[in-house]
Amino acid sequence: MKKHLLDLTITENRFIGENHILMKLTSNEKLPGVVPGQFVEVRIDHTPTVFLRRPISINFVDYKTNELWLLIQLVGDGTNHLSTLKAGDVVNIIMPLGNGFSKPTNARDKVLLVGGGVGIAPLLMLGAELKRDGFQIDYLLGARTASGLLLLDEFRKYGDVYVTTEDGSEGETGYVTNHSVLRKQRYARIYTCGPTPMMKSVASFAIKEGVDCEVSLENKMACGLGACLCCVTETSVGHKCVCSDGPVFNIKNLKW
C-alpha cells in the first residue's frame, strides 16, 4: 500500500479518562484507505526532548467524515505534547504503515478480539470491518481498573463486549484469559493487542485450543518503514521488523 506523508488537521482532541486522548484528524483530500491493524508515525514538533516520530496504531478511520482516529496513552513527553494540541492544529503524519490483520476465510466464523489497556485501539476498526463483512464478533477487553476501559460504547456497536478488570471494579475480576466467556464460546480465530504478557497468555490459550491467532506487536521504532532495522522481533525465520513485516504477526511465526 502506498505510504503518504500528510499534514492533517485536528478536528477534535479530548481526554478519555485521565491518561488517554482520542485525537481525530482530517484532510482536505480524501484520507488514504487503511487495513485495521496498520499504524501511523506522528511527528512531534516543538518539544525540547522528543526527537523521533511516535508510532500510533490506527483506532478507526471514519470514511464518511474523512477522519482518522488515534487513541493515545500518555506515557512520556511526546504523547503528553500531543495531548496539548487543539482543534485546528496541524500534525504531520506518515500513513498507513505496516501490515494489518487478515480476515478469516469462512464468512460465518465467530471471532474473538482481545484487547488490554491502550492495545484495544486497533480492535475497534477491525471489529467494524469484520462485522461489515458478516463475521460474528465478541470483544474481550481488560484493564487494571474500570477507568481504563475505554470507548466501550464504540466497541458495542460492532459486537458483544465482555470486560475484566484486575481490581474487579467492572466486569469479571482478573485477567482477560480468566474470563468465563472463553470456556463457553468456541472461536474460529482470535485477534489480540495489548501488553506483551497478556498477548502471550492469549497466545498460549489459542495454541492450547488450536485456534488461529494474530497478535499486534509494539516495539520501539525509528523509521517505521523497514529501513533502520531497529524494531525487530524474533520470528521462526530470524529477525523481522515489527514496523514493516508486522506489526501484526500470526503467532505460529513468532517464537512464543
Partner: peptide, 23 residues
C-alpha cells in the same frame, strides 16, 4: 548476519542510539 537482539534503539536528547549490528 542476524544483528543484535532487541532493543536496538533508544531516543536521546536531539538524537538516538542504535545497536542494530549490521543485520
Amino acid at each position: 548476519r542476524e544483528g543484535n537482539p532487541y532493543p536496538r534503539m533508544a531516543e536521546t536528547p536531539s538524537g538516538m542510539l542504535n545497536c542494530v549490528g549490521l543485520q
